[in-house]
Nucleic acid binder design. Structure first.
Length: 263
DNA sequence: AACCAGGTTGACG
DNA sequence: CGTCAACATGGT
């Protein structure tokens, strides 16, 4: 593995927080701070040194987009500062960027996330790619649509196996058209995704935020419920935008606070 | 041994 | 409309 290529990074960006904040499940960090993993079916090694990204893949343009380096996070982060809790979250992890993951991969990943924990989600996805993907890439809907609940048993995904299969069948058949969903207003996009068994409001919002880069999508999971109950009893402020980015900061922040045992 | 994990479903009031 | 157990699996 050689990190022969480089990409200049905007101030404040954090590769570690971006890849470890729970929005993706296929990156692993070794003891030297080198991340190895996949974006879709593209494998790479990444490492951040100050304001530079070192990478093993010559297609730096792809990674510039994947890591969302061209968006206006510094401006957004400043605006978030008007809220006390968000200001603390930005201070803690304002270097996170919302990855431009593939819609299908994000959809399946968050179907798997339901009532599950992150280490096990990672394991199931690893097996999914290892058993059914080409070169360990993420398997297509068409590929998975040819499987059965029984043959998906190797994933040890539990009750989610039939959800994965249902998603594969509906996407492969075109009943759920991911390309079409990308252009729909948020509520209609959510409704379209929820035709799939195992896709409720939270999973749909995750797919839209992480897979379709819809930065106004706002997934509310157990952690975000905690945040909303504790810091926003009057409701989450309407002026916050993009809400999905704020959500990601708050999610990572509250998990950190919880791991500190106090707060 | 219970309880929990980036929820969703179907049943029941 | 709201509540609630069940759902597979693996880790405390």
């Amino acid at each position: 593995m050689q990190l022969s290529y480089r990409l200049p990074l905007p101030a404040g960006f954090s590769l570690r927080d971006t890849l470890n904040c729970g929005q993706c499940f296929r990156w692993k960090e070794d003891s030297d701070g080198v991340f190895s993993g996949f974006a879709g079916s593209r494998k790479a090694f990444l490492q951040q040194t100050e304001d530079l990204l070192l990478l093993s893949d010559p297609d730096v343009g792809f990674w510039q987009s994947y890591l969302d380096l061209d968006e206006e996070y510094p401006t957004w982060n400043d605006s978030f500062g008007a809220d006390e809790t968000l200001r603390a979250a930005v201070q803690f992890c304002g270097g996170i960027r919302i990855l431009r993951q593939e819609p299908w991969e994000a959809l399946v990943s968050f179907i798997i996330s339901a009532n599950n924990n992150i280490p096990r989600i990672q394991g199931i996805i690893q097996r999914l790619c290892g058993y059914f993907g080409e070169e360990e890439g993420f398997p297509s809907a068409e590929r998975l649509a040819g499987e059965s609940v029984e043959s998906l048993g190797v994933l040890r995904a539990g009750f989610r196996a039939r959800y994965i299969l249902d998603a594969a069948e509906k996407v492969a058949s075109g009943q759920v058209d991911l390309g079409e969903i990308a252009a729909l207003p948020l509520p209609e996009a959510e409704a379209a995704l929820r035709q799939i068994n195992g896709v409720g409001p939270k999973v749909a919002q995750c797919a839209l935020l992480y897979g379709f880069h819809r930065l106004e999508a706002f997934p509310v999971d157990t952690w975000m419920k905690k945040v909303l109950f504790r810091y926003y009893p009057e409701g989450f402020p309407d002026w916050v935008s993009p809400r999905g980015v704020a959500q990601q900061y708050l999610f990572h922040y509250i998990r950190h606070l919880d791991s500190q045992k106090e707060g």
